[in-house]
Design a protein around this nucleic acid. Structure first.
Lengths: 163, 163
DNA sequence: GGGTCATAGTTGAAGCGTCAACTACCGGGT
DNA sequence: ACCCGGTAGTTGACGCTTCAACTATGACCC
C-alpha cells in the first residue's frame, strides 16, 4: 500500500476548487441576505421544513435529518427559535421519548416574509446564473453525491463519528 | 412591486434541495475524515494554499480570499496553526502593515500526510461518484456561480456587510 | 506636508456548533 | 418480570466563528 494515492488531475483540481469556493461564497451570500432580514440560514432551513410539513409539525429527529444537522444542534436552534416565539415544543403522542416541534402563527408569518427574501437570493446567486439545463445537471450530480453518501457503509449515519 | 416573487418550480426546488443537502453532507464527510487525522477542513485549506504558494508564503489577505474566509477568521486560524508549529508569521517586506504567513517544515510534513487522506476523501465522496463529464459540468456550473457572484455590484466583497 | 479615506491585520466578547455524557423510553429476548 | 441494547432528546462545557472596534500604515490630493 505504498503511494497508491490517486491525485486529482489538473482538470479535476480545477473543478474541485471551483466547487469548493463557489459553495463557500454561495453559503455566505445566502446567509448574509437572510441575516439582513433577521434569521440565519440554518434557522431559516428549520422553519422552512416545518412550514412545509404536514400540520407544520415535525419530530426533532426527522427535522435533523431533513436539514442535515446533528440532533443536538437542532435542539439548540429550536430553543433559540422558541424564545422568539416562532416555534413550540410539544410531546409526541405515540412515543413518550419524542418531541414534536411545531410552527406558531408568528412563526408562519415570519417564515413567509423570509421566504420572499430567500427565494430572490437563491435565484440571484444560483438559479438565474445558470441555464436551466446546467442547473438541472447540477441537481442530478448533487443527488448522485447524496445517494452515494447514503449507500457508503463506512459512513454510518450522522450521529456516529468513526475515527 | 406587489408579489412579484418568482417562486421555484417543482424541478428547480428538487435541484436546489439536492444541492443544499449534498453540500452539507459532503462538507461534514470531508471534515470528519480530516478530523480523524488531526485537522479540521478549514485548517487544512489554509495549509494547503500555503503549500502550493510560491515559497510556501502568502499574505494574510490573499490567503483569506483564496480560502473564502474573513480576515479575522484567518488570523484566528493561523494563530492556532502557529501554536502547533505548522506556520510562522513574518512581516511583509514591502508593506509595513502586512503579514506574510509561511509554512514551517513541520507544517509541510503535516500537510503532506493530510493531503493523502483528503484526496481519498474527495474522490470517495465526490469525484468518483460522478462520471467525468458530470464532474466537469459541475465544475463549470460552480465556476459560473463564482463569476456571477464576483460581478454582482450589490455584493461588495467579503469584508463589507451591506444590510 | 498635512488631511482624508482606504487597506492590513488584530483583538476580545458574544454567539453558535460540537462533543461526550446523561436521562428517559422503547423493544426484543428469555 | 427483567435485562439489554438501541433510540430520542437534552445539557453544559469547550472551541470555533462572527462582529464591531481598534491600531497602524499606505495612498491620494490639494
Amino acid at each position: 500500500m505504498v503511494d497508491d494515492v490517486r491525485w486529482l488531475s489538473v482538470e479535476e483540481q480545477w473543478s474541485w476548487r471551483a466547487y469548493l469556493r463557489a459553495t463557500r461564497e454561495l453559503d455566505a451570500a445566502l446567509d448574509r441576505d437572510l441575516q439582513c432580514s433577521g434569521v440565519s440560514l440554518p434557522e431559516y432551513e428549520l422553519l422552512s421544513m416545518l412550514s412545509e410539513a404536514d400540520g407544520s409539525r415535525l419530530r426533532m429527529s426527522t427535522l435533523a435529518e431533513l436539514i442535515v444537522q446533528s440532533r443536538s444542534r437542532v435542539t439548540h436552534t429550536a430553543a433559540r427559535l422558541e424564545q422568539r416565539g416562532w416555534v413550540r415544543r410539544t410531546p409526541a403522542p405515540d412515543d413518550r421519548r419524542g418531541v414534536v416541534l411545531e410552527l406558531t402563527d408568528e412563526g408562519r408569518a415570519a417564515i413567509e416574509r423570509f421566504a420572499v427574501v430567500h427565494v430572490r437570493s437563491v435565484r440571484r446567486h444560483l438559479v438565474d446564473v445558470l441555464s436551466p439545463t446546467q442547473f438541472h445537471a447540477l441537481g442530478e450530480a448533487m443527488q448522485a453525491v447524496r445517494v452515494a453518501y447514503a449507500a457508503d457503509p463506512t459512513t454510518p449515519d450522522r450521529p456516529a463519528a468513526p475515527c
